[in-house]
């Protein structure tokens, strides 16, 4: 199963490679890094644009325990939300909205888009806890559940404009924000709050896929 997943991942990346953006005014090619996986194509190595969040160097771990850098999402339209798994009110609504957005996408875009949940609950949302969350919510392979360090999580929150603060009960008060990144990792749309705005977000994702 793992091999199949790996193969699919790799073939997706291959499929993305031909239409990688190549605007010479904004990007310059640098030498490719050695591959980390047997069949991996080179990760796109052109410099990131000035507004790309992928310039951030913070490191995350996915729910399979693999080290993950946001730059790996380059080339895909991204729906990104910061949350915590034990959140009883806002976060389930945010995840439900992300699922609704996913359902509304044209299949071609849905096949490329990445749905990313980054937790600010460093203590409890370990990779195994996030794996359990994935299981419970039936989140497919196009969902990424990320655990970070205090450094990488706070930096990402600062980049997105997300405020969060631990509360006495072990929870967090936090901004409710769904962010759309284009293929270069630039913020092109944010939905603030918990209601509505899904169609606008879907439209932004369609645009994100083109940019």
């Amino acid at each position: 199963m793992k091999t199949v997943a790996l193969f699919l991942l790799c073939s997706t990346a291959f499929a993305l490679a031909p239409d990688a953006p190549a605007d010479p005014s904004r990007r310059q090619t640098v030498t490719a890094k050695p591959d980390t996986c047997c069949c991996a194509p080179p990760i796109p190595t052109a410099a990131y644009s000035a507004k790309s969040l992928y310039q951030a160097e913070g490191s995350f771990t996915d729910d399979a325990g693999r080290v993950f850098r946001l730059g790996e999402l380059r080339g895909r339209p991204v729906v990104l939300t910061m949350f915590f798994a034990s959140c009883g009110y806002a976060c389930p609504l945010l995840v439900a909205d992300m699922q609704a957005i996913r359902a509304k996408l044209p299949p071609a875009i849905r096949g490329r888009a990445a749905f990313v949940l980054v937790s600010f609950d460093l203590a409890r949302d370990t990779p195994p806890a996030l794996a359990a969350y994935r299981e419970q919510h039936g989140l497919g392979r196009d969902w990424m559940l990320l655990h970070g360090t205090d450094d990488s999580v706070r930096e990402l929150a600062a980049l997105l404009g997300v405020s969060y603060k631990p509360e006495t009960g072990g929870g967090f008060s936090h901004s409710n924000l769904i962010t759309i990144l284009n293929r270069e990792g630039e913020i092109i749309h944010q939905r603030a709050g918990l209601r509505g705005g899904l169609d606008e977000t879907v439209a932004a994702l369609t645009l994100a896929n083109r940019e």
Binding site: R154, A157, A158, S163, Y164, K165
Partner: peptide, 9 residues
Amino acid sequence: VDDFNTAMV
């Protein structure tokens, strides 16, 4: 401060 963004608006 490191956690300036804990301040809720």
